[in-house]
């Protein structure tokens, strides 16, 4: 492969020596593949964190958006890249947790095909309902769901989206079977929630917080152990009396399998430094993000997280019959 490249270089009229430049990593810009379109929540986290990591590493981290198939297109490509530390990726709950259940023909194994770098940020999930919903807290909501069953309409942002996956999980926890209404993205779903067309949904805090604060929709609970500073008045699921529903859409950096431990350590160090930086923290917190504590930032704990997420999502999604193929 390399020979061919050299031959072609020579063909261009340049004398090829073929020697790769030697020296400490990184020698050139690093590509971080974001498996979603520019501007989405994962892209935002990647750009905020990547910005600070570039400064630590002394080489730019270039974000490459390779969107498609719920993020699996980009992750597949990144997993097959040279494990030289120059291609890394920002995965999330879907690509490294739910994907094996959603995509039976997935070309990678989240637990085996990656060298985890570290957890970047989590976005808590909030349970929201239309303004006119005939209940004012989670308990009243659950009672209403029991009484009305399929009459209730739940909105989600399309099969495979975070709001869809967490919605299925939520329904399985509260044993509800509402009528599911799909939207293309969170925006249109929220619009119909605000117009009282659909009844409730679950989604990432960054998407719903403005509407909750603006009084256009109501929030029943936030699916984290602690309340979010972005929504201090919204109780946690546990406080509201619901056990077993704690979810956050996490984002984490990975390298392809086989990347040398030294390089991973260097990248992890840059990531940790970014998460300790005041400016970066503020930007993430402003989005309602949760910044992982020290113990959660190591590659090892990320590996454990991926394993536990795959184990958690697979039965939930399989039981709901949700596949994207």
């Amino acid at each position: 492969m390399k020979k061919l490249a050299i031959a072609l270089a020579a063909g261009l009229g340049l004398a090829a020596t073929g020697a790769q430049a030697q020296g400490a990593y990184p020698q050139r810009p690093i590509t971080m593949i974001v498996p979603f379109a520019a501007g989405g929540p994962t892209d935002v986290v990647a750009r905020i964190v990547g910005d600070h990591m570039s400064r630590t590493l002394g080489q730019q981290i270039v974000i490459e958006n390779v969107a498609g198939a719920g993020g699996t297109t980009g992750i597949t490509r990144a997993a097959q890249a040279q494990p030289d530390g120059y291609t890394i990726m920002m995965g999330h709950m879907g690509t490294h947790g739910a994907a094996p259940a959603l995509y039976p023909n997935l070309k990678y194994d989240p637990t085996k095909d990656f060298a985890p770098i570290g957890l970047a940020a989590g976005t808590p999930i909030v349970i929201v309902a239309k303004k006119d919903f005939p209940a004012n807290d989670l308990k009243g909501f659950l009672d209403y769901m029991k009484a009305n069953g399929e009459k209730v309409n739940m909105a989600h942002a399309g099969v495979g989206s975070v709001s869809h996956m967490t919605g299925i999980f939520f329904n399985s926890v509260i044993k509800a079977k509402p009528t599911m209404v799909a939207y293309r993205g969170t925006g249109p779903a929220l619009n119909d929630l605000m117009a009282n067309t659909v009844d409730y949904m679950t989604d990432q805090i960054v998407n719903v917080a403005p509407q909750i604060l603006g009084g256009n929709i109501k929030a029943f609970a936030i699916a984290t152990p602690e309340r979010s500073p972005a929504l201090p008045n919204v109780p946690t699921t546990k406080e509201a009396g619901l056990d077993g529903f704690e979810v956050s859409a996490w984002n984490a950096a990975f390298a392809p399998k086989g990347t040398s431990p030294e390089i991973v350590a260097k990248l992890n160090d840059a990531l940790v430094k970014a998460l300790d930086d005041e400016g970066t923290r503020k930007r993430l917190l402003d989005l309602g993000g949760v910044i992982p504590v020290k113990a959660e930032r190591t590659p090892e704990s990320l590996q454990k997280l991926v394993e536990s997420e795959v184990a958690r999502w697979t039965p939930v999604l399989k039981a709901a019959g949700a596949t994207a193929e």
């Binding site: 501007g39 935002v44 750009r47 905020i48 960054v206 917080a209 403005p210 509407q211 604060l213 603006g214 009084g215 256009n216 503020k282 930007r283 402003d286 989005l287 309602g288």
Partner: peptide, 8 residues
Amino acid sequence: IHGIVPGP
């Protein structure tokens, strides 16, 4: 990305 969450 610039820290403004659009909304009402």
